[in-house]
């Protein structure tokens, strides 16, 4: 499975990296005012794109959000308090591919300005307190190692401790291979914690964003009481390329996209980014009062 997802993760990671670099090259450098949409190639005024929550006004393509942008989108201003920020990954296998895992971690921290591939904490959505986890694809492709598994588990436990609904926003290429079997075990750990949350009678809401694949999908991303997805997000178990290689045929258009999952019964509702907070609020109000 991870063979698949991770394989795909790397291809996508390369793409995403190019994408991020392209975005930052275009977005962050003063004087660069225009960007081309990755989907429809429309030339967009960057200020317009940002004012539109990084959604292409021409074709509705949803550009990736950073975890900080996502938190700003969902939480009431100034209400988010991060928890467990100081848990760090470590290279316990002494694993080295083109570079040592330890260096990869440090580089990712510098490049993404994040400590790990998920940020967790407590915040308020339309004045409703929630326990929230937000993954960030820019940190090693949002891959799940010990830290991601631990932080997701702890935010579920925090929800139980304070009787809060738990919300997780996913963006992940799957398990983090550099942590070997321990990355696989995070699937077991997070799922067991969510079983407890369920027994507690607390709601668990998943917001699936582009991309969510592999071990992440096959554990906490698919265990929500409610599954919300952004339009056009790639969501799957195996990556498309691996499936193509296995079955030796082209995949149908739209395969493994949000709309495909919705029509196959795996996603409750697809929500445009501009409506995400209001939809989430309605669902939270179903549970609260």
């Amino acid at each position: 499975m991870a063979k698949i997802s991770i394989h795909e993760w790397f291809t996508r990671k390369k793409k995403a990296k190019a994408e991020t670099e392209a975005v930052s090259a275009r977005l962050d450098i003063p004087g660069n005012l225009w960007i081309k949409c990755y989907k429809c190639s429309a030339t967009l005024f960057i200020k317009d794109l940002e004012a539109n929550l990084k959604v292409c006004p021409k074709c509705n393509y949803h550009f990736k959000l950073s975890s900080a942008e996502r938190i700003k989108l969902l939480c009431d201003e100034g209400t988010f308090k991060e928890l467990n920020a100081e848990i760090r990954s470590t290279d316990f296998l002494g694993f080295s591919d083109s570079q040592p895992y330890q260096k990869r971690i440090e580089d990712s921290m510098l490049k993404s300005n994040l400590m790990e591939a998920v940020i967790t904490g407590e915040g308020q959505v339309s004045s409703i307190p929630v326990a929230l986890g937000v993954m960030d694809f820019s940190f090693m492709g949002g891959s799940m190692g010990s830290v991601v598994g631990e932080k997701i588990t702890r935010i579920a436990e925090h929800g139980m401790e304070h009787k809060l609904p738990v919300i997780v926003v996913t963006a992940s290429g799957g398990a983090r291979m550099q942590e070997g079997i321990m990355s696989l075990m995070q699937m077991a750990k997070t799922s067991a914690a969510l079983q407890r949350l369920r027994e507690f009678g607390l709601p668990y809401i998943v917001i699936l964003t582009d991309p969510t694949t592999g071990g992440t999908t096959a554990s906490f991303a698919m265990l929500g009481d409610i599954h919300i997805a952004e339009p056009g997000a790639l969501i799957g178990f195996a990556g498309p390329r691996v499936i193509e290689q296995t079955i030796r045929q082209k995949l149908p258009v739209g395969f493994q996209r949000s709309e495909f999952l919705e029509s196959h019964g795996m996603v409750d509702v697809i929500v445009n980014r501009k409506d995400l907070k209001s939809t989430l609020t309605k669902i939270l109000r179903f549970y609260k009062d």
Partner: peptide, 23 residues
Amino acid sequence: GAYPGIGAEERGQSEAIAKNLRE
């Protein structure tokens, strides 16, 4: 590994495995 195929994705390979883990 679990089978990576079109039908497997259509029928929710991820959901099936995730649910097993939880249960």
